[in-house]
Design a protein around this nucleic acid. Structure first.
Lengths: 197, 197
DNA sequence: GTCTATACTTCGATAGAC
DNA sequence: GTCTATCGAAGTATAGAC
């Protein structure tokens, strides 16, 4: 994460303990927000001493970046495997509408507000993911006979992303008015596009 | 904020100093994220002693709730004044697409993740605001001749909200691919609807 | 209404023993 | 690789003088 060198020892990246710490940090982040991810609480949640966090990660930011990166890579991998087998607009919508990652995204968006290293990491991933989805969505829309002049794929992508994001955030707050209706609307639209292709 | 009573003194709600503290807290929240909103930093930013924060607010949560509530009321007031004079779909889109509140929303969405008092406050406001916008948007869509059976107003509302939200979050990260194109698309659509009505 | 003083907790991080 | 021990900084909150 950083190029400065210090005399401090650092644990191996493939360590089992290290993975456990990342698991604990991710769980804390999801359950209680990023402010709860402290070396003491991560250690405790993992059943280990907090100093081990500093043995495996130079700083807490390094730990956050690792939590993010691990999930991002996993997500990107899943997406690429789905696309490789050929995928419909409905598949793309379902992948996108997965609520599992919503809280995760909110926390990291907030974190990115004031932690430079994390913002950089998120931006890099967001662009990679964006490009991958755009390519798949463009192909799927073309197959469904949608004129890209009339509905640019990138617009459809942003609408799709925005919809699932806003429903996820509101869902967490307990506000769900119109969600069922909107989901039904999108699924109907997507099904009709599927019939065409 | 709370019904427990303690012996501690509390400053007047209409105090000038209190307003300055809320200003400072809001600025810190926007600039550096909610984790930066501590009694020490708020006091320092306001040029006052941190203990004054505790004189005006029983807990830091009370301060957060006040920051949120003040802005929410102001926002709702502005919206209602706009609607009172009659408003078009374009007006609604512009109001919604105001990026100024994006960071604010992200921070509070993250805060709501783990602070019950704040979540309750946000949910209450979100529902009020949602109802107000829905009413205005429903009327504007009807005036533009949009069939509510074909495009339910609540769906249009969620699309609108989602779009501006996702563009705001990405914009903060420095990811802006497709944003200009999407904004142009929406503005064109909205203008065409305006011509009809 | 604002201050000093202070209690107590938790934080990130490091050094060095085993 | 994991532990004990420890530092200094920062956090929330309260009591009481002025």
């Amino acid at each position: 994460m950083t190029t400065e060198h210090s005399t401090r020892r650092l644990g191996a990246p493939d360590s089992r303990t290290r993975a456990i710490l990342v698991d604990a940090a991710e769980q804390l982040l999801l359950d209680e927000g990023y402010a709860a991810v402290t070396s003491r609480r991560v250690g405790s949640a993992a059943g280990l001493k907090p100093q081990l966090v500093h043995y495996y990660f130079r700083t807490m930011d390094d730990l956050f970046v690792e939590v993010f990166r691990r999930r991002a890579e996993e997500n990107l991998g899943r997406f690429e495997r789905m696309v490789a087998g050929g995928c419909s607009i409905a598949d793309l919508w379902r992948f996108n509408a997965d609520l599992r990652g919503a809280r995760f995204n909110i926390e990291f968006a907030a974190l990115a507000n004031h932690r430079k290293a994390i913002r950089t990491e998120i931006a890099r991933y967001a662009e990679r993911f964006r490009a991958a989805v755009l390519e798949a969505l463009g192909a799927a829309l073309a197959a469904a006979g949608v004129d890209p002049e009339r509905v640019p794929p990138v617009v459809a992508l942003l609408v799709m992303t925005g919809l699932s994001q806003v429903m996820a955030i509101e869902g967490e707050l307990g506000v769900s008015a119109g969600h069922a209706e909107t989901t039904a609307f999108v699924e109907d639209l997507v099904a009709r596009l599927g019939d065409h292709g």
